[in-house]
Amino acid sequence: MARQQLPPQIKTRDVVDRRTGKPVRRYVVTVDVAPPGEPRKQVKKRFTTEREARSFLATTQAEVARGTYVAASSTTVRQAVQDWLDTRQLKPTTLQSYTVVLQALVDENGDTQVQKLSEADVVRMLRRLRSGKSPGRKKWTARSCNLLLTLTKAVLESEKRQGRVVRNVAADIRPMERDARTAKTLTHEQMLTVLDHECRDRHLWTLALHGLRRGEIAGLRWENVDLDARTITIAETRVAVGKEVLTSTPKSKQSRRTLPLPQDVVDVLKAARRAQRAERLKAGSMYQGGEHLACDEFGKPYHPDKLSRDWREMIKALGVDRVRLHDARHTCGTLMHLRGVPITVIAAWLGHSSAAFTMATYTHSQDDALAAAGVTLTARVSEQM
């Protein structure tokens, strides 16, 4: 039987084997891999047998025809993550947050080549994080794991668009079921206990119960408070990301908002303003800053985490059941809802872009006590919202 002629993409080359010193034949494959309409691109590879050369040529041409061909790449997961972060146009706080979350992917699979990363690798990583078996890390919540999964999918999708992987191996991984957790809200009596509590930071807890985020409270400056017009403008946030405190603009267009204040809130803010001015006089040259509503006796802005710690200590001292500072925001949304405030208005007050998100996340009807709060909410909080 006549020997089958080699295709033009395969050339033979006679060389001397370095180990034996004898002449041997090698097969060099040169194949076009650029999609139609794009500049020419070729891949060249050498084989010891004709069979291997023909197999590589056929497989490569078929992948090019299907649009699934990717050239061999040594890009690692660590490099892919860094490339993705470097090309994102994100707020500094969001970028830092994503960097912290994706560090788990880098720590687990950073040295793995992206082309060798498997779906099983990603699933195992998520399971270890969820179970608390990832070295050096506490047990992650399902929410945190799902955020990491979302970001991992985004990184791999970027690699796919750039032609470095055939498919996104994380694309079909389903998010973990969220922890069954209902946000706690203060009862009507508990809310009044906090609002009436005379303390240095009473104005901060009042703002929290009127729906401001922790970062918004930490970032609020006196220049954005108009006590005559009875308004506050949310124009800046201070948030803790890792060990850093980052100052930025609000998280969305809807989060930047101007809110009318009830008179009792204005009175609390006026008292806080007078107290801070007195502290400035007392501290003299030691006083630095004082632009923020949330600051110490010497004008230094609070670390956002301090707000959470002081809130916990305050409600414990008042004998109130443990409720997170962020749950004060839930309380605001819930009481507005139970008082019949339209959900679109509640969303605008809280700074949400989606009324559906507000309804699903920030309004609750938990028990008889909360239902009663909707009926008996005092005029100073509800009627002027």
Rank of each mutant, 00 (worst) to 15 (best):
S308N: 09
D226P: 02
C332I: 03
K253C: 00
D14P: 01
R213N: 01
T231S: 09
T49V: 03
V15W: 07
R312F: 12
Q384K: 11
A180N: 10
S365H: 09
D196A: 08
D310H: 02
Y302D: 00
L95A: 03
R128I: 02
V31I: 09
A62D: 14
T93A: 12
S252M: 08
Q4P: 15
P262Q: 04
N168W: 04
Y98D: 12
I234H: 03
T361M: 04
R277V: 13
S353N: 14
E223K: 06
A62G: 06
Q9T: 13
E50A: 01
T12S: 07
Q115A: 15
P135N: 02
I10D: 10
K139R: 12
A294G: 11
P342Q: 00
D111A: 10
G163Q: 04
V15K: 03
I343E: 04
T258W: 14
P342C: 01
K139E: 11
L156Q: 09
D321H: 14
Q61C: 04
L212V: 03
L6I: 01
A355K: 07
G37S: 10
T358I: 07
Q115S: 15
R200I: 02
L126E: 06
P35N: 04
A356H: 05
D172E: 15
K22H: 12
C199A: 02
H203I: 06
K306L: 15
Y362T: 09
T150Q: 14
D32L: 11
E291Q: 05
A369I: 00
R88P: 07
K282Y: 12
E297C: 04
E313H: 14
K22P: 05
R164S: 08
D107L: 14
T247G: 10
G374K: 10
A2W: 15
D321A: 11
G163H: 03
T247H: 07
L259C: 01
L227P: 03
R174Q: 09
T193W: 05
V268H: 05
Q254K: 13
M1T: 13
R274K: 15
A240W: 06
V166R: 14
R124I: 12
R181G: 11
T361G: 05
M336T: 02
T334Y: 05
L259Q: 03
G289Y: 00
D201F: 11
E383A: 14
F47D: 04
T30L: 09
Y362K: 11
R380Y: 06
V320A: 00
R329N: 06
R19G: 13
